[in-house]
Design a protein around this nucleic acid. Sequence first.
DNA 1: ATAATACCCTGGCCGC
DNA 2: TGCGGCCAGGGTATTA
Length: 284
Amino acid sequence: MPELPEVETVRQGLAKWVTGRTIRAVEVHHPRAIRRHLTGDAHFIALLTGRTITDVSRRGKYLWFPLDSGDAIIGHLGMSGQLLMQPADAEDEKHLRIRFTFTDDGPQLRFVDQRTFGGLSVSEGGAELPDEIAHIARDPMDPLFDDELFVARLRAKHTEIKRAILDQTLISGVGNIYADEALWRAQLHGARLTDQLTKPAVRRLLAHIRDVLAEAIVAGGTSFDELYVNVNGESGYFDRSLNAYGREGEPCHRCGTIMRREQFMNRSSFSCPRCQPRPRTIRH
DNA sequence: ATAATACCCTGGCCGC
DNA sequence: TGCGGCCAGGGTATTA
């Protein structure tokens, strides 16, 4: 499941492999992969053919490729999307959705996506920051992320803390895995209410979010299966460092209590019953 | 206005 | 072995 560390790992790989290269041709193999490009595949292809990729940028879980035209390719991996560099003679992947070839006849860029929650689109004039993702908050690895603004906005909300840190308009890049990891480190249950947390408590949580994201980037991300890999098809190894996610029935790495799983926001949340007690207050 | 829910997808896995 | 049902969950549209 690509969250910020996985997307950043992909970004770094792409930056090395596609920056400065000129697109010769684009093939769209599945319409759903460009469903967010509202003007259709012919227009998508026309905007890209002959253009040179000048950089690879990221905000949260979104990627974009600025082009020499001033436009940008926007990419989101969704649940199972992959952006792979492949030699031209490599066999097509079963779930190949979009293929880019380049004028240098070097490795192709392929968008592969089993569950089709991800996709690409072109943002006209979006090289600096596409309008389509301007509503996404800066992520905590961004030098311009405003810590105190985040603390204030979070505490102004009336919701559960896990919902808040998964809200990409408040802080971007955090998904279910790293949310559970950061909450475990901060010793907070995800159902704690944002407006009942102190400023220092929120600052501590933010520091843990930053730490866990940074450590995961160093590890190349978290891989449970073949659905997340870097541009060369390799898995990350942060799964070996997880303290919460997926650890139901196993002892807490801090206190030894057996970890629990709870249904939360229609997905699984993992926590320690002792280190992260449920709040006593009833939601209203 | 904000908050919470429904929906989109596929394939691996489980129990019968 | 086959099959129905469940599960993974990011982002957005819809509902409350």
